[in-house]
Every structure is written in C-alpha cells, then in structure tokens.
Design a protein around this nucleic acid. Structure first.
Lengths: 212, 212
DNA sequence: TAACTGTACGAACGGTCGTACTATTACCTG
DNA sequence: CAGGTAATAGTACGACCGTTCGTACAGTTA
C-alpha cells in the first residue's frame, strides 16, 4: 500500500503530479471523452514526459478508471457534500438539483458535466470503464431517489428521480451544444414544478370545484 | 452534377456502395461515436479497400457529415414521417414521442439513438460536424415545440418541448447504459403526464375537496 | 475502335496511439 | 555524506490513423 502524505502532511512528490495529471485528464475527458483522452496529449500539456505520465497508471484503462474516480471526488465535493447541509428530503433534494445545475453552469469541467459527457460515450461498450461509469450514474440516481422517497411527493420516487435527472442532463447538453444558457432556466422551472407537492403543483389555480 | 440512378431506376454501382458504407457508418457511430468511426474499420468490415471507402468522401470530415445526413434520413423515415399521419397538435406530438421511444427501443441503430450518442460527443468541439449535429437536434426540438404549440396545453411550448425531449434522451441512455428497458416505461409515464391537459393531469385522484 | 469516366485497388506517407524497456534524476534515511 | 528507492526522462516498438498516389478494369460515349 502506498502512503500518500509525508509525516508533516505534505503530499509526496509522486502523489502531487498524479493529482495534477488526473485533474487535467478529467478536464480533457469532459470535452473529448475518455477515449479521446490520450497520454501523449496529457504529457504535452503538462510538460511531463509521456513515459512519466504513463508510469503513474500502467495502462490507459487504469488512467481512465483513475480519472473517473478523480472526477467523482470533485463532483461529490462540489454538489453532494454541500447539499447535505440541508435536511433530508425535499430541501436536500432541491439543493442537490440546484447544486448540479450551477456545477454544470459554472463549468467546473470545461465540457460541462463530466459524467454527462462520458455516459453516452460508454453506454454501448463493454469493459471495466463502462462499468465504472454506469455505477457512478447509478449512485447519483439512487441518491436522488432516496431523497425523493423522504419527500412528501406522492409519486413513485424512482419516477421522480428519472424525471429530475432527465431535466438536469438535458440542460447540460442543450446549454453547451447550442450555447443556450437559458436551458438552465428551463431545467429550474421543470425541477421546481416536479418537486412541488401536489396541492400546489403547477402553480396556477386548481379546478374551480376545489376552491373554497 | 452526378446522376444517382440509371434510366431504368436502378442505382449506379458507386451510389450503391456509398449507401452501404453510410448505413454501416451510422451503425458504428451510434456505438463508438463519429470520432471513433474510422475509415480503416469501415473498409475491413465491408471488405472494401481503405482507399475505395475514402474516395467516396475525400476526407474524414465529409464522411462524418454524410453519415449525419444518412442517419437523419433514417430517423425521419422511421419517426417523423409516420407521425405525420396523425393530425397536428397533441395526437402528432404523442405519436412523435412514441415513435421515438420505439425507435430507440428497437435499436434501429445498434447503439440506440444516433443523435443521442453523437450530441454529447460534439457539444464542446468546434467545427462543421458539430454544427451539423447541433442543427439536427435543433430541428427535432423545434418540431416538438411546434406541435406543443398546436396542442391545448397552457404551458410554454418551448418548456414542454424541453421536458419531453429530456425524457426521451434520458430513457435512451438509461436503458442502454444500465441495460434497463424499464426506463422506456418511465419515459412513457412522464410523457403521458406532461402531455395531458391540465384538468386531468397526473391521473390519480384530486384532493378530497374536489370530489363530488 | 478510341477516348473517356466512374469505381475500386494496393502500397506507401507522416503522424499519433499505447506500451515496453533502460537510464537518469531527485529525495529520504541512515 | 552515502546508499537506496521512488519518480521522471529517454528511446524504441508495432499498430493504426487519415491521406495521397499511381494503377487496373468496367462501362459508356464518340
């Protein structure tokens, strides 16, 4: 097992460049995909020798897997953890969605959401990378579903999760591909409506019979 | 100008292999993306020489653009045209959604929807291929929006289009990546609810006060 | 028959890919 | 300061990439 930090808490030399590499790798992959990511390009951009980059991972597949783990950590730190300051259920669910949208909007990764870029790329391929990508997506959906379950929405939580996640991903790709930031507004509108408990759903007045 | 068919209506030899190439190219691209698509692989799979494949297009970019056009035609034939048998507005809108879902479900392209695979791939890149991909997506969304406009849904048609398209794309990626065909059911449920005019929206019973 | 066009072929180009080695540097420890 | 180990550099490889070139052969037109 490799130690990561020196006694005084500083990072070892190798670990430091490893993180440098992975941060850049995640950025590149969010634009070019995990296949488009290449060791040669990493080494050029970071001004590290190709073999130096390669030695950290031993294979391209390991680099891809490590990149997914690094991107996951960034995502969790920026979206998931802050939302856990909100109480479980609806408030946390709303915070997760809003956190996701600003994470995409502010381009934490230059290509928008890392996972939105990488999921379609591997959806039809076999292999360990695909499995890792799928698992990351499943965990995110499960997190949303769990919070939906604890909310007072009398719809199937899995159905709510499906729809909400759909809005988020759609906003990401629309905003980037068409350079249309208003897609984020559309997503916010859609999420707000979907996460509003029934009596007040879709703000405007209920049918006349229901009014006092 | 190149003629495409002989006087008797048969295809010229070149046009025939060109179509063969493009059909295969669209299939490959739906799985590997338009960058993952390679002339060498096409030539191997089709048992045509690499230069023979190349000569039809003159550059890889032209091949990619032609592949997009070919995939668009297949999509229109399978999803759009049949839906136009339904009257404009809500019926046509529902037919478009249902047509799209079965098109994805039945794997017209082996990787699911061609455009769902290719849009994220090019969302952050410059160039003519990206422009073509974006335009195809924009036309599809506009088509949905137009039909929403002619429906009696008192929501912003563009908002309806955003949400409906989001459901479709989400179903596609979920179903493929997680090998979970029930994502199509989720999408159908979501679309049905979204395309139901307000009074009857979200089928289950209205609040007690509204019941007779 | 002669000229021309469309179509496909095979070989080769320079370049980049991932990977495998060996050599060299930098740092920690004794 | 010495030695050893971890980290990086250097070099080379085979495979594949997109692309170019010259060529062969069929079918049509003159």
């Amino acid at each position: 097992m490799t130690t990561v930090a020196n006694p005084d808490g500083r990072l070892e030399r190798g670990e430091q460049t490893r993180r440098l590499i992975l941060r850049r790798a995640a950025d590149i992959a969010s634009v070019e995909g995990l296949e488009g990511l290449s060791i040669g390009r990493l080494s050029t951009e970071l001004e590290i020798s190709k073999s130096g980059v390669f030695a950290h991972f031993g294979s391209k597949e390991e680099l891809q897997l490590a990149t997914i783990r690094a991107a996951t950590k960034i995502f969790v730190d920026e979206v998931v953890t802050p939302a856990f300051q909100q109480p479980a259920g609806l408030p946390r669910l709303r915070a997760l969605c809003e956190g996701w949208l600003t994470y995409s909007e502010h381009r934490t990764f230059p290509g928008g959401c890392f996972f939105a870029a990488v999921q379609p790329e591997f959806s039809s391929r076999p292999g360990r990378v695909r499995d890792a990508v799928a698992e990351a997506g499943a965990r995110w959906t499960a997190l949303i579903r769990d919070q939906a379950e604890k909310s007072d929405l009398d719809d199937d939580p899995a159905q709510v999760a499906f729809e909400v996640v759909a809005f988020l991903e759609a906003a990401n790709v629309q905003a980037i591909l068409h350079n249309a930031p208003d897609a984020y507004d559309r997503a916010r509108t859609a999420v707000r409506a979907r996460l509003t408990p029934r009596p007040a759903r879709r703000e405007p007045r209920p049918p006349a019979a229901a009014r006092p």
